[in-house]
Design a protein around this nucleic acid. Structure first.
Length: 425
DNA sequence: TCTGGGGTCCTAGGACCC
DNA sequence: TCTGGGGTCCTAGGACCC
C-alpha cells in the first residue's frame, strides 16, 4: 500500500499557524501581485470562490463576507512544508517516501505487514497537527492514482473519515470509481475531460469499460498506465529526487511597462536568478530562452509576444555571461510601442559543472567567473538576497509585494531556512 | 485599474543518415 | 531519371501536474 499525505488548503493553514484567530473564518491566499486566489479555506470555498479566481473580481464578495486575504509568503510555506515532510517520513523506511509537491508526499507502506496501517496513519495525521499545526488528509491505496482518489474522499467529508481513508478492497474501489467524475482523475485535464465526455465517459469507472486500443489512441501511453492504476495494478513507483531539467524565472508586472530600460532591467534580473539556481544545483546550462509579452486580457491594446532561444557555445552558470546573453536576446525581441505585462527567462539542457565540454573556437571564461560567483552567493546568503549583484540590476526585487505582517517579519528573522535547504532535504 | 509561477512528459514532424 | 525502407536526433507544441 501507498499513502498520500496531503495538507488541507495548505497556504491558508500556514497563515493560520501565524494567526490562530483565522481559524474557522474565510481566508484566501493570493498569487504574485495579489492577482489570483491560489489557496482557499473551507469557509472561502463555501462562499463560492473558485480556485484561480482573479482577486479584483471578488473584491466585493471579500468585503461583504469579511474574507481575509493574504499575499503569498513562500519562505513560510517552504518552512512549514519541511516540518510536515520531516514528521511524515519518520513513519517509513529511509527511502520510502516521495515529496510530490510543496503540500503533498507519498509514503510506501509495503513493508508494514503486521501493523494496522489505518491507525498508524491516524497517528501520523495527529502528530503533524500537534507538532506542525498543519491539518492533513491521508489516502491509502495500492496505487498512487487510487491514493489521490482516497484523499479526495477524505476531503469531501473530513469529520466522517477522521482525516484518513483506505481504498483497500475491490468493492470500495469499484464504488469510488463509479462515484468519481472522469475529469477528477489524476492525469485527466480539461482537454481530455471534454474528449471523454464526447465519448460517453463520465465517471472513472466508464473509462475501464473502454477497449484498451481506444484508450491508447486517445490518451497515448498515459492512458494505458492510468487504467491499470485505477484497477489497482501498480504502474507508478515512488520517484527519487532528481536534479531539475529546466529552470524558469518569470513574472507578471504589477503595472504594464513601456520603457525598454525598465523591461530590460527586469529580464536581466530574472537571468541572474536563473544562474543563482543553476549554481545551487552545481549545473551549467547550454540553452537560454527569453520571452516578453503584453497583457492578453487588454483587447483594447495592441498585442505582442515573442521569444527567442540561444544555444550557448559553452555551458555556463555565470551571472555575467548569462546576463549578457539575456541582454542580447532581449534586444532581438523587444519592440517599442507596446505595453508589456510579463516576461521571463528559461534555461535548460543542463550539464554538471565539472563535466563541461568546451568549444575549441570560442572563448570560455566560465571558470574565471566561478570563484567570484561563489563568493557573491556566499555573501548574499549571509547578508540577504541581492545584497551583492550585477551593476545592471536595480536590486529592487520587492515589486508587487504587499505589506508584511509583524508576525511574518518575526518569522523571517527567526528562521533562516532557504529554498536550497528545502529542495535537497 | 486589477487575471500566478513554476515544472514534467509525450508526440508529431522535419532534417538528416545509410 | 526514377525509386524504397529503415533509422536517429532534434524541436515545437500540447497536455498534464501543483
Amino acid at each position: 500500500m501507498y499513502a498520500l499525505v496531503d495538507c488541507n488548503n495548505f497556504f491558508v493553514s500556514c497563515e493560520r499557524t501565524l494567526d490562530p484567530g483565522l481559524e474557522n473564518k474565510p481566508v484566501v491566499v493570493l498569487s504574485n501581485n495579489d492577482g489570483c486566489v491560489v489557496s482557499r479555506s473551507k469557509e472561502a470555498k463555501d462562499l463560492g470562490i473558485p480556485m484561480a479566481a482573479p482577486a479584483f473580481k471578488y473584491k466585493e464578495l471579500f468585503k461583504k463576507h469579511n474574507v481575509k486575504s493574504f499575499s503569498a509568503k513562500f519562505e513560510l510555506y517552504n518552512f512549514k512544508s519541511q516540518q510536515v515532510i520531516h514528521i511524515s517520513k519518520s513513519y517509513v523506511g529511509e527511502k520510502d517516501y516521495e515529496v510530490y509537491s510543496i503540500d503533498e508526499l507519498f509514503l510506501d507502506l509495503t513493508s508494514f505487514k503486521y501493523v494496522d496501517i489505518f491507525n498508524y496513519c491516524i497517528k501520523l495525521k495527529e502528530e503533524v497537527k500537534s507538532e506542525a499545526k498543519i491539518p492533513v488528509s491521508i489516502g491509502i491505496a495500492p496505487t498512487k492514482t487510487l491514493c489521490k482518489i482516497a484523499n479526495r474522499i477524505v476531503k469531501k467529508d473530513p469529520e466522517r473519515f477522521n482525516g484518513v481513508f483506505a481504498l483497500d478492497t475491490p468493492e470500495k474501489i469499484e464504488k469510488a470509481l463509479k462515484w468519481l467524475n472522469i475529469g477528477d482523475v489524476w492525469g485527466i485535464g480539461r482537454r481530455l475531460a471534454i474528449k471523454m465526455h464526447d465519448n460517453g465517459v463520465y465517471k472513472a469507472w466508464d473509462l475501464l469499460q473502454k477497449p484498451e486500443m481506444w484508450v491508447r489512441k486517445v490518451m497515448g501511453i498515459h492512458g494505458v498506465r492510468m487504467i491499470n492504476e485505477l484497477k489497482g495494478i501498480r504502474q507508478l513507483e515512488l520517484d527519487t529526487p532528481s536534479p531539475k531539467k529546466s529552470i524558469a524565472v518569470t513574472r507578471s508586472f504589477m503595472q504594464m511597462l513601456t520603457k525598454r530600460e525598465e523591461v530590460r532591467e527586469r529580464v536581466e534580473t530574472f537571468g541572474m536568478y536563473c544562474s543563482e539556481r543553476l549554481r545551487k544545483q552545481n549545473t551549467c546550462c547550454k540553452m537560454v530562452t527569453v520571452f516578453v509579452q503584453t497583457n492578453r486580457f487588454r483587447k483594447d491594446l495592441p498585442e505582442y509576444r515573442n521569444a527567442k532561444t540561444r544555444i550557448l557555445p559553452n555551458p555556463t552558470n555565470s551571472s555575467i555571461i548569462l546576463g549578457r546573453v539575456v541582454h542580447e536576446l532581449f534586444e532581438e525581441i523587444f519592440e517599442e510601442g507596446f505595453h508589456y505585462k510579463k516576461a521571463g527567462v528559461i534555461v535548460n539542457d543542463f550539464v554538471p559543472e565539472d563535466q563541461r565540454l568546451i568549444n575549441l573556437f570560442e572563448e570560455d571564461t566560465q571558470n574565471q567567473h566561478l570563484p567570484v560567483m561563489r563568493a557573491m552567493d556566499a555573501m548574499n546568503k549571509k547578508y540577504g538576497k541581492d545584497k551583492v549583484r550585477l551593476g545592471s540590476m536595480s536590486g529592487q526585487n520587492t515589486w508587487g509585494r504587499a505589506q508584511l505582517s509583524p508576525e511574518y517579519e518575526a518569522f523571517l528573522k527567526n528562521n533562516t531556512l532557504t529554498e536550497a535547504n528545502f529542495r535537497f532535504h
